[in-house]
Simulated assay, not measured.
Amino acid sequence: MKSILFSLLAMAQITLCTAQQKPKGSIAMTSKVYSENNEIMDLMRFENINYFKTLFKGDSLKNKKFTITAKQFWKGKLSKTDTLLNTSIFEYVGVNKTDSLPLRVISKTQGKNIEVKFIFDRFEVPHTFKGLKTSDYSLRDFGTDLPIEPNKPFYAFAYILPYEKDGGKYWCAVESSGKDIETWGKEFGIKHYILFEMNFIE
Rank of each mutant, 00 (worst) to 15 (best):
S3Y: 10
F6G: 01
L8M: 08
L9A: 04
M11R: 13
A12R: 15
T15D: 07
T18A: 14
K24N: 04
A28I: 02
S31Q: 08
K32L: 12
Y34K: 01
N37Q: 12
N38H: 14
I40A: 08
M41A: 03
D42I: 04
M44G: 02
F46R: 06
K53A: 09
K53V: 08
D59G: 07
D59I: 02
K64M: 05
F66N: 06
I68T: 11
I68W: 12
Q72E: 15
F73I: 13
K75S: 09
K75D: 13
K77F: 15
K80G: 13
T83Q: 12
S88G: 03
F90P: 00
E91N: 05
K97A: 02
S100C: 02
S100W: 00
S100H: 03
P102A: 10
P102Q: 13
V105D: 13
Q110I: 12
Q110S: 12
K112E: 10
N113E: 12
I119L: 10
F120W: 06
F120V: 10
F123E: 04
E124N: 15
G131T: 11
G131E: 09
L132I: 11
S135L: 14
S138H: 07
R140L: 11
D141V: 07
F142H: 09
G143Q: 06
I148D: 01
N151Q: 04
K152F: 15
F154H: 14
Y155E: 06
A156W: 13
A156M: 14
F157A: 15
Y159N: 07
P162T: 06
G167I: 04
E175G: 01
S176L: 13
S177Q: 05
S177E: 08
W184N: 00
K186V: 06
Y193C: 07
I194N: 11
